Computed example of a mutant assay.
Amino acid sequence: MAYELAQVNIGRMRAPLDSPVMQDFMDGLAEVNAAADAAEGFVWRLVDGATGFRFWGDEWLIVNMSVWTDAEAFRAYVYGPAHRPFLQRRREWFAHLREAVTALWWVPAGERPTVEDAEKRLTLLREKGPTPEAFTMKAEFGPPAP
């Protein structure tokens, strides 16, 4: 069976999405999402994740979810020229959280994770640390053996 890499990351907004604090973030979101859509190894992303879903029922948490062919493709996008400037400015828009805000896991090729799946994986990572079921870019696990 083939696998793809799912990821979730959340952010606790410093202000409402329509506030001046969040304006640069919102103004750049379409461009960053378009770069992801065009990136080598990109498979799928949750559309309207920043504005259309509540994570853990918290209106101040926004969610980004996507699926990639592999960890290398995901890493290339995250640290690439379109996304890196957003990453460097994240503290302007989002509060620092002590708990993990990003979780990765393998899904069967063609499967699309739900927000509920992502909540479970991030909770697992926070409770148990990196495991094959939920891990980080610094503590990666390969896909399940065929």
Rank of each mutant, 00 (worst) to 15 (best):
A30S: 10
V107Y: 08
P143N: 13
D18H: 10
L61I: 05
R121H: 15
A82D: 08
N64M: 02
D37C: 03
M137W: 10
F25Y: 15
D58N: 13
W68L: 01
P81L: 02
P81A: 11
A50Y: 13
E4T: 08
R112G: 07
A73N: 03
W106V: 01
A39M: 03
L29Q: 05
D24P: 10
R14P: 00
P20M: 07
Q23W: 01
M137Q: 11
D27I: 00
T123V: 04
Y79Q: 14
A6P: 08
R112W: 04
F42R: 12
L87W: 13
V107P: 09
E116H: 13
D18R: 03
V47R: 14
D58W: 11
N33W: 00
D70M: 07
V101R: 14
R12P: 05
V32P: 06
P20E: 12
N33D: 11
P20L: 05
I62E: 04
L124S: 14
V67I: 09
G52K: 05
Q7C: 09
F86N: 11
M137R: 10
I62L: 12
D48Q: 14
V43M: 02
P85H: 10
D117P: 03
F86D: 10
G28S: 09
A103R: 06
P20A: 15
L29G: 04
Q7W: 04
A38W: 01
W105H: 07
L61V: 06
A103K: 09
Y3E: 09
Y3L: 05
D58L: 10
N33H: 02
L46Y: 12
W93Q: 06
Y79P: 03
G11P: 05
I10P: 06
L87F: 13
H96A: 09
A76L: 02
K138F: 07
N64I: 00
F53G: 00
W105F: 14
D70Y: 06
N64D: 02
E59S: 00
A139I: 01
A95L: 08
T123W: 11
A73S: 15
V67H: 11
L97R: 01
A71N: 12
A76V: 02
V78W: 12
E31C: 00
V21T: 15
P130S: 15
A118P: 10
L97G: 01
L124M: 09
P85F: 06
F42I: 03
P16N: 06
V107L: 12
T51H: 05
L61C: 13
M65I: 09
V78L: 08
V107W: 09
G142I: 08
A145L: 10
A36M: 03
V101E: 13
M13I: 10
M26E: 02
T102D: 01
E4N: 14
M1G: 15
A39R: 01
P146Q: 13
G57K: 12
A134W: 03
K138Q: 07
G41H: 02
R90W: 02
Y3T: 10
P20Y: 11
F135Q: 05
H96G: 04
E119G: 15
L124Y: 15
F141L: 03
R84V: 08
R126W: 08
A145R: 13
P144W: 11
A95Y: 09
A71Y: 00
N64P: 02
T131Q: 06
L97C: 03
E127M: 07
F94C: 05
V32Q: 05
N9Y: 07
A95R: 10
T114L: 04
K128I: 01
G11W: 00
A71T: 06
G110V: 02
